[in-house]
Computed example of a mutant assay.
Amino acid sequence: MRTTSAPGQRPQDASGWAWWSEPAPQLLQELVSGAGGLQGATARARLARHGPNSLRLAGGPAGVALLSRQFTSPIILILLGAALLSLLLDSLTDALIILAIVLMRGVGGFWLERCAARGGGGPSW
């Protein structure tokens, strides 16, 4: 039985049917299935109608977008501000050290996220 929920009642999925709260026999009847699973013909028909039960892998962000995203965190922006302030105060050495740290962090973050997006999980040391 497909019901809708009011505030204070059990949650539902996007279709409005709280299928997980149904008794197993009633659920199997609703899904036209059995305790042993689908019969071969029914499984083939559903496969043809709905496609395979698999996840599609989404493409990761483009390289340029991934690299630029490394330089948008608040700590990086603070460090860039500190480098600018160091330049304004004629402390070139401090500014270069801060910029080197920002660059290393950006390249390292880019590399790790790129490996993770490709499914490698990260670099192998």
Rank of each mutant, 00 (worst) to 15 (best):
D90T: 05
G16T: 04
R114G: 04
L96C: 13
C115S: 08
G122K: 13
R105I: 04
R46N: 14
I101M: 11
A6H: 09
G106P: 05
S86F: 04
G122V: 14
A45K: 11
A41Q: 05
Q26C: 00
R46C: 10
S15K: 01
A24M: 13
G60K: 06
I97A: 15
A83F: 05
W111E: 02
L79Y: 01
G120A: 14
L57F: 03
S33W: 01
R2P: 03
S21I: 06
L27S: 05
A41S: 14
L92C: 00
R114M: 14
G40V: 09
S91T: 08
L66G: 06
T72L: 15
W20I: 09
P61S: 07
A14Y: 00
H50C: 06
P25I: 07
Q26A: 09
P7K: 12
S86D: 06
L28I: 00
I98K: 08
R118H: 15
G106W: 02
L89R: 13
R2S: 05
S54G: 08
S54F: 07
W19S: 09
P23D: 14
G63P: 10
L85F: 04
G108L: 07
Q70C: 13
Q26G: 00
L79T: 00
S54Y: 06
S124R: 14
Q12Y: 05
A45Q: 15
L85W: 02
S21M: 08
R105G: 05
L84G: 07
G119A: 10
A116Y: 09
W20E: 11
A41D: 08
L87N: 03
Q12V: 15
W125A: 02
P25L: 05
A116G: 03
P7I: 06
T93P: 08
D13V: 09
G34P: 00
A117K: 09
R118T: 11
Q70L: 01
G121P: 08
L89N: 09
R49K: 14
A14T: 12
A65M: 07
W20R: 14
R46H: 13
A100Q: 09
G106H: 06
L47Y: 10
F110P: 00
L66V: 04
I76D: 07
S124C: 10
R10D: 13
S91Y: 03
I98R: 08
A82N: 03
A58K: 12
G63K: 01
V102N: 04
L79P: 00
W125E: 01
I75E: 15
A82K: 14
P61C: 02
V64W: 10
R105P: 01
S15A: 05
G40I: 06
S33H: 01
P74D: 15
G59Q: 13
L87G: 15
P7Y: 11
A65T: 14
G63F: 03
I76T: 15
L67K: 03
L84Y: 02
P25V: 02
A82I: 00
F110E: 03
P23K: 13
G59H: 07
A95T: 09
A65N: 11
A41T: 10
M1W: 08
A35R: 06
R105Y: 07
L99P: 03
P52H: 12
R2Y: 06
S124T: 12
